[in-house]
Design a protein around this nucleic acid. Structure first.
Length: 401
DNA sequence: TCTGGGGTCCTAGGACCC
DNA sequence: TCTGGGGTCCTAGGACCC
């Protein structure tokens, strides 16, 4: 089964508002959840069903949404609350099986292989879950029932909201092949253009297209698209928590910044958060990557492999600073980000005898800070530089207020 | 007031080795 | 006697997902 929360961020915000005693259910009006436009975070994160009827799409600028629907109501989301709703759903699903993969904050795969030869019962479970989520948690889900993850996911994407759909092998042709190719998982904007040039319009067209030719045109991705279109997917439900493969932190700045020392200060604040998360997972980075986006929306990145994996804030920052130095070239920076890559666990790290003393000192500093953060919240302790950064990022806000 | 942030995976080219 | 072939590692960029 694939369980998908309908309009997750919007529904969860609606539930919060109703719980606070507000009258209007924002699911019933043209409404969206969006970022703060003043600080250039103005994209649509979620939309209500009626907002969708105006042609508003997730990810597009809010100002564009307003053009499509001038009376649209825009609300800010609360991420902590989203995490809580997500956990509530997960806990409810846990009552049915512990083989659950949390695919994202609002999607889960459930492995119910135990029910495989009892289709009738399995679908009844789906109806039961749908009903319970609605009654106990106050929001609705779509549930897809199938024999693999891909088909379950495709099924949950059929008619919304609050629906259960099946997509068994014999239903692929009638239910999935008629859909536009863009509806297929892993077929994005770029692929659609190329597929159109090949005369491909529907998922069925992909399925019936020559597999080898598709691989020739798209490489590995061609194989994936062809297999998915034919309902082939042998991937497992990954129900054990996996350690992350990379950890990143980036921000779109309220205004373009040219000044490298200002950028360095922001980079330090971003680095601190990344290093903190690395230490929380007991991981170390082997590769550090710094990215910038210029005002004309061009992305540049540089990375460096480290001689020795690390999670020490200062060490990561020194590398990041060098990378930024090379990248910068007096460009107008709109976004800046840092990412730790090729993560390794503690026992995979070869200990070097050199620099051990200096490391011990830095590790002690980091550990002390981490403990304070864990106890009193991430914001409780910040470097002097961070204070300046926060003030800088708030300049516009304060002026507006 | 135009375009977020956090991820995973893949590809292509170059350096370098035998 | 002008420049093979196979492999690994590193880096930059990009597609795609929610």
């Amino acid at each position: 089964m694939h369980v998908d929360v309908n309009n997750a961020f919007l529904s969860w915000t609606a539930v919060d508002k109703l719980n606070r005693g507000e009258e209007v259910d924002i699911r019933t009006i043209p409404a969206i959840i969006g970022g703060d436009e003043a600080s250039r975070h103005g994209v649509v994160l979620a939309k209500s069903m009626s907002a969708k009827q105006f042609g508003i799409k997730t990810g597009e600028p809010i100002y564009q949404a307003r053009k499509k629907c001038p009376q649209i109501q825009v609300f800010q989301g609360n991420y902590a609350s989203f995490q809580k709703h997500s956990k509530d759903l997960y806990m409810l699903l846990q009552e049915y099986t512990d083989r659950i993969e949390r695919f994202s904050i609002d999607e889960c795969f459930m492995d119910l292989t135990l029910f495989l030869r009892k289709d009738e019962k399995l679908i009844n479970k789906a109806y039961e879950i749908r009903k319970r989520v609605k009654e106990e948690l106050g929001f609705t889900v779509n549930i897809g029932v199938a024999n693999n993850k891909l088909l379950a996911k495709m099924a949950s994407d059929f008619e919304k909201p609050d629906k259960v759909h099946t997509l068994y092998k014999e239903e692929i042709e009638s239910k999935m092949w008629k859909l536009p190719a863009s509806e297929l998982f892993m077929v994005g904007r770029k692929s659609i253009g190329k597929l159109q040039n090949l005369g491909i319009k529907t998922i069925g067209d992909i399925a019936k297209f020559n597999k080898d030719l598709l691989i020739k045109k798209f490489g590995k991705h061609g194989k994936i698209m062809w297999e998915y279109a034919n309902g082939i997917d042998n991937s497992e439900v990954i129900y054990e928590e996996e350690t992350p493969k990379c950890i990143g932190n980036s921000i779109t700045l309220p205004e373009d910044i040219y000044n490298i020392s200002k950028l360095n200060e922001i980079l330090l604040a971003l680095t601190e958060q990344v290093a903190f998360r690395l230490r929380k997972h007991e991981l170390r980075a082997s590769v550090i990557n710094v990215q910038i986006r210029t005002k004309d929306f061009i992305n540049y990145s540089h990375q460096k492999k480290l001689d020795m994996p690390t999670n020490i804030t200062k060490e990561i920052y020194e590398v990041a600073k060098e990378l930024l130095q090379v990248l910068h070239k007096d460009r107008a920076v709109r976004l800046i980000g840092i990412r730790a890559d090729k993560l390794v666990s503690k026992d995979e790290v070869q200990l070097s005898l050199f620099g051990e003393k200096e490391n011990k000192k830095q590790e002690k500093i980091d550990k002390t800070i981490d403990e304070l953060k864990k106890k009193y919240g991430y914001e409780i302790i910040t470097r002097a530089g961070d204070m300046k950064v926060k003030n800088m990022l708030n300049i516009r806000k304060e002026k507006d207020e």
